[in-house]
Simulated scan of single mutants.
Amino acid sequence: MPDALSKTIPIWCAVINRLLFGELHESHDLHTPEEFVGRFEHAQIEARLDGFVDDAESLDLDVPSLRSALGKPLHPSWITPDFSTQHLRSSTDYRQVVCCTASRRVIGTEASESGYIQGAGDDSEGWSHGLTPALYWKHQRQLLEAVEGDMLYMIQRLVIAYKCSDTEYDNAVNIGPTNLYVGTITSAMQPELYDGMVICRDQPPPTPDPGNKHRKRTKTLHLLCGDGKLGSRALRSQLSRILSFFNTLPSKDKPPKLLFACSNGKDLSVGVALTVLCMFFDDDYHFTLQTSNTKIDKTLIRRRLACITTAKPDANPSRSTLQSVHAFLMPREA
């Protein structure tokens, strides 16, 4: 079983329960599958939980809102081809987090993982054929009722329909209490929705329909950085252009509505939005066209990133992207 299922998710369940449901002490215990996590390792992990909770508290999260949204504490259970949790907690008391893997154990093949074969279906990119969680939940009944032989064709049809629909252009997500949005390159195809756009791409995006004379002209900054590590490294030198770009934005009574876009809407665009949140917003997320007087350190960066990931759970800036952000915001420590 992957460590992500046997250890990481149980850790998060325990930390979230302690953070959001402090009075429900019975939900604070760490639960790991005994067949995969030994008692000694379980005890080592459990001893570090209080420190993890302290780290989570330092992010200054909106705990009441998160508690209200979740409603109940979390409890993990596991299903593999060789193992399943025998006794599931009552759903009236907990939200069950089912950790399911298609990987199997072949004793002797990989001693470090007790025979666990990696890559046997745990990465959705290898088997989903483009089906995303949002598409699945939107068409759940249709997919579950489909004949297995028709499943691949149905998924391909749903994915193509989504890519051809207007909803793909409207994939930008609003970041918390701000007027900032993070999305993919296709979000930039609707520039009239924004006062300004920052687009991360190694070449200009498709030009909007020129026939629409009433389309609003939106100030746009193109940061020349493509996908992957090279793009993340290039971001470091491109971030300095943000200062002059913000000086060109119209000064209004309300903060400008800004879009940050990259190819997947999860990496470079998140890094740029994170930089802007640190530079132009105070601790109450009030915007100023002048750089904020708030001291920028690692704690502040973690808090601002938590604000983004709370609004956009699939935000996943790479290590290289975060290193570029740190180097720009804290050059003396880089």
Rank of each mutant, 00 (worst) to 15 (best):
C278V: 06
K216N: 07
K312E: 04
I242E: 01
P208E: 04
N212S: 03
P317T: 08
V270D: 03
N316E: 11
L305M: 09
P204T: 08
F281S: 09
I296M: 11
G231K: 06
S240Y: 02
D284L: 14
K229W: 12
K295Y: 12
K266A: 11
V272A: 05
C225E: 06
Q203L: 08
V198S: 03
K229P: 08
L289Y: 00
T291A: 14
K213Q: 12
D297H: 13
K254H: 09
L221T: 12
N264I: 12
K219M: 08
K216L: 11
L274N: 05
K312H: 11
H222F: 15
L305A: 01
P250V: 02
I301P: 01
L300T: 11
L268M: 09
K312D: 03
C225F: 04
L258V: 07
T288Y: 00
S251I: 03
I199D: 00
T291D: 02
A234D: 14
D227F: 00
P204M: 07
T248L: 02
F280T: 01
V276F: 08
D202S: 15
G211C: 03
P208K: 13
G271N: 08
G231Y: 04
S292Y: 00
D282A: 04
C307V: 10
K213H: 11
G271C: 03
Q290H: 05
D209M: 07
L224N: 15
S232Y: 06
L223F: 10
K216T: 04
T310S: 09
S232A: 15
Q238N: 12
T309G: 03
D284Y: 12
P206F: 08
M279C: 14
G271F: 04
D284F: 13
I301S: 06
K252G: 02
H214V: 08
D297Q: 05
K213F: 08
R236F: 12
S292D: 06
S240A: 02
L230H: 13
A306C: 08
F245W: 10
K216E: 04
I199K: 11
H286E: 07
T207A: 13
L258C: 07
P255R: 01
S318P: 03
R302E: 10
L300D: 03
A306K: 06
A261T: 11
F246D: 01
D284H: 14
R215M: 15
K229S: 15
Q203A: 12
R236A: 13
D284P: 02
V272G: 10
N316M: 13
A234M: 13
D209T: 05
F280R: 01
L259H: 00
G226M: 11
D267C: 14
K229N: 14
P210C: 08
I301T: 14
P317Q: 14
R201P: 00
G211A: 06
L235K: 09
S232M: 06
L300G: 05
D282F: 14
D209G: 08
F246K: 02
D283N: 13
G271R: 13
K266I: 11
L224P: 02
A306F: 09
H286P: 01
R302L: 07
K213L: 10
